[in-house]
């Protein structure tokens, strides 16, 4: 098997590996580097608001701005910890308007 594979499936060259790695890392970095400045604040405020109703963790939220075709999208992904809903609506401290 190994012999035939060596014959018919040429090994990827290191340059090909470099190109693929670069494409992946740059796709990721472009998205985060070109994100507008308000995203971290938005993320924090969303976390505070949603956190009043359901239990979520600090890193259970992902906010990304994207574009596909002609439309821009704001994608918000929030993970709820064990699907727990807080009882009795918003907790007292979170009622203050300042977030």
């Amino acid at each position: 098997m190994g012999f035939f594979r060596a014959l018919f499936q040429p090994k990827r060259t290191s340059a090909q590996v470099a190109k693929e790695r670069l494409k992946i890392v740059l796709a990721h970095e472009r998205a985060s580097n070109r994100a507008p400045d308000f995203l971290p604040t938005l993320q924090k405020e969303l976390l505070a608001v949603v956190g009043r109703y359901v239990e979520i963790s600090e890193d259970g939220i992902r906010v990304t701005l994207g574009a596909s075709g002609g439309t821009s999208t704001l994608e918000i992904n929030i993970e709820i910890e064990g699907g727990k809903v807080k009882k009795g609506g918003p907790s007292g401290s979170a009622l203050s308007p300042a977030v």
Partner: peptide, 16 residues
């Protein structure tokens, strides 16, 4: 080295 696949080719860098 590019011909041997040891170095990124000019078209690769241009594309990236």
């Amino acid at each position: 080295r590019v011909a041997k696949g040891e170095m990124l080719a000019v078209d690769d860098v241009k594309e990236i």
